[in-house]
């Protein structure tokens, strides 16, 4: 490894290490502080309430993980979706009609089944697991959307959660939720899809909000710590961008 490569890669390594150190720091120092510093995101409050109502009413929660491949950029949002799916499965584990997860990617379908099964096992209700609770609904964007729309219509769905990599087909799924008078909470990693969901979903999750579900739904102290680390790093990035703009304005860059 030559010196040039080391110098080129150093900022990336340093940034990841800083992120890791901040997470560990906030984890060990902030465990007692809990979630008091978190700003209010209405979507998560409504989600908690809606899942509770679904359990009581015997209706179903539909979770769509999108169609992001796990070997590319959408991996992050798909994994955030898995975290939320696990929380939802635990919260609705006592329901007569357990949640159903849809996806447009084979790996996500397999992982969603695994997540649901693991969640029920940890709650000692493994009998609740249904073999078709994690479904692959279609391989193309519109086929995936059409499969999810049919499910929303046919399976007495009261809450729709869309968290994953979606294109504009998310609008069709959100519309099916609206047509069936169910609550739709949605977030995606695609900026254009976020604009679509802002108009379509009752509770859109914009930007980093989509990745914050673990911290807001009690997935553990590490989730809260990572959210605090994200906040600090966002300020650092904003300061660097501003400093760069000022330096350019002053003719230093």
């Amino acid at each position: 490894m030559n010196l040039n490569e080391l110098v080129t890669n150093l900022p990336g390594v340093a940034f990841i290490l800083l992120f890791l150190i901040l997470i560990l720091l906030f984890y060990f120092t902030g465990r007692k502080r809990g979630t008091r510093f978190l700003r209010d995101i209405p979507a998560f409050g409504r989600l908690r309430h809606s899942v509770g109502l679904s359990v009581e009413a015997g209706s179903r929660v539909h979770f769509s993980l999108g169609r992001g491949v796990l070997t590319g950029l959408p991996t992050g949002i798909s994994l955030a979706g898995m975290t939320l799916l696990e929380r939802i499965a635990r919260a609705a584990s006592s329901s007569d009609r357990p949640p159903v997860a849809t996806s447009g990617e084979g790996t996500l379908a397999i992982l969603s089944q695994d997540v649901l099964k693991s969640a029920y096992r940890s709650m000692n209700v493994e009998s609740q697991y249904e073999a078709d609770a994690g479904r692959f609904t279609g391989a193309t964007p519109f086929a995936f959307a059409a499969g999810a729309m049919t499910l929303i219509k046919d399976e007495n769905i009261s809450t729709n959660i869309l968290l994953g990599h979606f294109g504009s087909e998310a609008a069709l799924i959100a519309d099916a939720g609206e047509q069936s008078s169910s609550l739709t909470i949605a977030g995606s990693d695609e900026v254009a899809t976020q604009a679509v969901l802002y108009a379509m979903a009752q509770e859109p999750l914009i930007g980093e909000e989509a990745y914050a579900s673990g911290a807001y739904l009690g997935a553990g102290a590490v989730h809260v710590a990572s959210l605090r680390a994200q906040d600090i790093l966002r300020w650092i990035i904003a300061a660097v961008i501003l400093a760069g703009a000022l330096a350019k304005l002053a003719g230093l860059l």
Binding site: F19, L20, G207, E208, R234
Partner: peptide, 21 residues
Amino acid sequence: IGVALGVLAAGLRILMGVDRP
């Protein structure tokens, strides 16, 4: 930028064994 930080946080939590999909 927010999305990128979220992805990084999700990745690090998996590497730490906190999230296990």
